[in-house]
């Protein structure tokens, strides 16, 4: 795993990594049942854009309150998988699927399930930050507003906690009622994170949240993911191997729409089972 980290950060990260491992093991021993019980479960999931198949027989169990990273070369279907979880792919007219996805053992494709209430339980941060043409304040509480909450005390509190959680509070607390489009790119992305967590969802999906950001903003967001993991189950797509190694507990490697390998992050990065994984993480292709 540490092969991939740059020289300077190795030391500090090693510490974090080790303590993290210990923590995970501790939890596994104390609460083994919880880890065995999958939170998000893909069952023989196939996904098609029209005639083109984007995902092949994905079987994947994502545990609760962990950070799960999805890596793989461009076009391998990571976003497709992520967007299936909150049924964002409904927007694509030609999309079809077979198999099933279960969240807390309930099928996402149950006809009785309301997509809107599902999405209220799942926050999503997109690859390209997409703040609304509204004030910062209104951006953060958007999910509460659409849920019909208009009580000022609740909204104020939600704004403060989520902006603090996304490490943006200090930068914007004096300009909450200015347009969100006046923020910098990194600030916008953190605003989108604040927006995604304002409604206290159970799952947080992040699709390459740092791809457009500089190292400082990236570091901030990574710290944030660390913080958030105590409360949310996070699934993050990233192209940045170091990032996956730094922030995630579990990692899945995808290639051409197939899940090649899935396991504990440190195992996958230091001692992968499959040759393709090995090739990819050592940068021999991708």
């Amino acid at each position: 795993m540490f092969l991939l980290l740059d020289e300077k950060k190795t030391n500090t990260k090693r510490d974090t990594g080790q303590s993290m491992t210990i923590e995970v093991e501790k939890r596994v021993s104390t609460n083994k049942q919880e880890l065995n019980k999958p939170f998000i479960q893909f069952k023989d999931f196939n996904f098609f854009y029209g005639a083109k198949q984007a995902l092949f027989d994905v079987n994947l169990n994502i545990p609760e309150k962990k950070v799960t990273a999805l890596i793989g070369p461009s076009g391998c279907g990571k976003s497709t998988l992520l967007r299936s979880v909150n049924r964002m792919n409904d927007l694509v007219d030609v999309a079809t699927h077979t198999g099933d996805i279960l969240v807390k053992e309930q099928s996402l494709f149950d006809p009785m399930l309301e997509v809107i209430s599902l999405r209220k339980r799942i926050g999503m941060v997109f690859q390209k930050s997409n703040p609304f043409p509204k004030s910062i304040y209104e951006n953060v509480i958007y999910s509460l507003r659409v849920a019909g909450c208009n009580k000022k005390s609740i909204l104020d509190e939600a704004v403060e906690t989520s902006l603090k959680a996304s490490a943006l509070w200090d930068e914007v607390k004096d300009r909450l009622h200015e347009s969100a489009l006046g923020l910098s790119g990194g600030q916008m992305q953190r605003l989108c994170i604040a927006r995604a967590i304002a409604n206290k969802p159970e799952i947080l999906l992040m699709d390459e949240p740092c791809s457009a950001l500089d190292p400082i903003a990236t570091a901030k967001i990574e710290e944030l993911i660390f913080e958030l993991k105590n409360e949310f189950s996070i699934v993050i797509v990233t192209h940045n191997m170091q990032q996956a190694a730094r922030v995630s507990d579990l990692t899945g490697f995808f290639l051409l729409g197939k899940l090649i390998e899935f396991g504990r992050t440190e195992t996958l990065f230091t001692n992968p089972n499959e040759k393709e994984t090995q090739d990819y993480i050592t940068g021999r292709f991708g």
Binding site: M88, R119, I122, N130, Y142, S143, C192, R195, A196
Partner: peptide, 15 residues
Amino acid sequence: VSQGSREGSLACGAS
């Protein structure tokens, strides 16, 4: 209006 804004809103649970 960008697809991103639409998706962002829908992902927040908006109808």
